[in-house]
């Protein structure tokens, strides 16, 4: 299949991005380049200098809301993409409203308890919508441990499911970028099966 046909297939889909940090910003950039039509991006945070170690932002965007900065960057990649932003802290109440109608949801949070809350909410309140999770990507090297698992048709996991990020073992651009792109790759695979 040639790229114009791939683009044409992907443009009718809507993908939710829950969190616009290292996973969400890099995954969104990859999905924009591949041709996904609509991205629904939710985040409440502002770009901080330390975020530039792994997130798809630029030094002149420090202080901006991540949703606004990411939208700006994605439109520079692909002006025809449709970006829906929600400046909100996601919770059990608003997740079903914000991501209803999405074809796939990307779990792109940093904190494990938020990941758990999102997955539980999507699986119980938005049944049938696949969620692609990122879990375990702190540190460097150990590329062979990063893997992809299909648990079932609604739950997919990317990462080593082992390396927990902390102040002394942060998530860094290479492994976060790999996992973010594994998530994007899973999204494209799920969507292309629906074509």
């Amino acid at each position: 299949m040639r790229f114009p046909e791939i683009e044409n297939n992907l443009k009718k889909f809507r993908v939710g991005i829950a969190g616009a940090g290292g996973l969400g910003s890099n995954c969104a950039a990859s999905l924009a380049r591949t041709g996904v039509g609509t991205l629904v991006i939710a985040d409440f945070d502002k770009v901080e200098p330390l975020n530039l170690s792994r997130q798809y932002y630029f030094i002149d965007q420090v202080g901006m809301l991540k949703t606004i900065a990411l939208k700006e960057n994605l439109l520079r990649i692909r002006p025809e993409i449709n970006i829906v932003t929600h400046q909100v802290k996601l919770n059990r109440g608003n997740i079903p409203l914000i991501f209803a109608g999405c074809d796939v949801i990307v779990e792109a949070f940093d904190a494990a308890d938020m990941k758990e809350m999102l997955i539980e909410t999507v699986q119980m309140e938005l049944p049938g919508i696949p969620i692609v999770v990122g879990s375990g990507m702190a540190g460097w090297g150990n590329t062979e441990a990063l893997r992809f698992r299909e648990i079932d048709k609604t739950l997919y996991v990317c990462g080593d499911e082992l390396s927990e990020a902390s102040d002394d073992s942060p998530a860094l651009a290479p492994r976060v970028g790999i996992v973010a792109n594994m998530q994007a790759n899973a999204v494209v695979e799920i969507l292309m099966k629906k074509v």
Binding site: G22, M124, S135, I151, L155, E164
Partner: peptide, 25 residues
């Protein structure tokens, strides 16, 4: 969900999937 871990009974033949969530992202 976590609050049902004490009340949910696993029986012979059940298929369980478990996924660990690590901070980072």
């Amino acid at each position: 969900p976590g609050e049902k871990y004490d009340s949910t009974i696993i029986k012979d033949g059940d298929k369980i999937h478990m996924l660990y969530l690590m901070s980072g992202g």
